[in-house]
Amino acid sequence: MTETIVSVRNLTRTFVQGGAGGKQLLKAVEDVSFDIRRGETLGLVGESGSGKSTIGKVLVGALPPSEGTVDLFGTRITPQSRDRAWKPLRHRVQFVFQDPHAALNPRMRVGQSIAEPLEVKGGMSRADRHARVEELMELVGLPPNFLDRFPHEFSGGQRQRIVIARALALNPDFVICDEAVASLDVSMQAQIINLLKDLQDRMGLSYLFIAHDLAVVRAASHRIAVLYAGQVVELAQRSDLYQRPLHPYTRALLDAVPRARKRQRPPVLGGEVPSLLNKPRGCNFSTRCPLATEHCRQVEPALREVEGRQVACHLV
């Protein structure tokens, strides 16, 4: 087995909501654990409020964890870690944003944007930087002579390529893609996913691929974690998860994906994701689960090993 480069243990992230008067604790992420190996893509799927983006922010150092630990290349990040702890990790962990329009400074030429991480890190001559930027442009499939243009002169798909080029500037080992294709047209999505996979093959990158779209996640990931209301409900190999989802929520999520020629229309899952301020007592999903029993409503299921995967459900 290849080396594990990211190891998340019992990660919890809480936010304080509301100002004067009643302050409430919102648990966006609760007790999440997973590993990512070198060259592997872990898909993180969930609906709004599932905590998937918060996990991404913690893994890139934009938010400290509230509880639990994150091990990145052997460096341990704890709730007590200061910004300094991130210094040696900065160039190894990078981020690809959802909206390529907001991810590029409109007043900087794209070449400058791509070069920024190189400049910040320092130790490179101007000519070397320029050569590296050209190399990166080519790597993501854009002609190097475009680097003097401004973001508004590119289409959404091309901008996302530029964002990817910037993320790769420092030769990272681990890239977090937060809904990286969600704002793109279907035909662009496929191009970007293919690009990410090519880059993975060539550079041995690991990805955390965060998305709400199950079909997109399937195309991009090796293993997939399904999140619901801040917790992992199922974590499995891609083919296992899609061919035989064990958790009722995973099943419902798969059923809900609209697709052509779905002969039989599966029953629609009712209800909505519970408020994170007011989670139900037992299983978070029990309020919507078609199979929920009294036991489910009382006792929270633990994530356990079942048939080579992890599931948090009493009924499996």
Partner: peptide, 22 residues
């Protein structure tokens, strides 16, 4: 457009694409 929709029923490693952009 139809083939670019990622498939839920198979583990394709490369998605068919439409070259170029709109």
């Amino acid at each position: 457009l139809i083939s670019a929709i990622p498939d839920l029923d198979s583990d394709l490693d490369r998605l068919p694409t439409i070259a170029g952009s709109i």
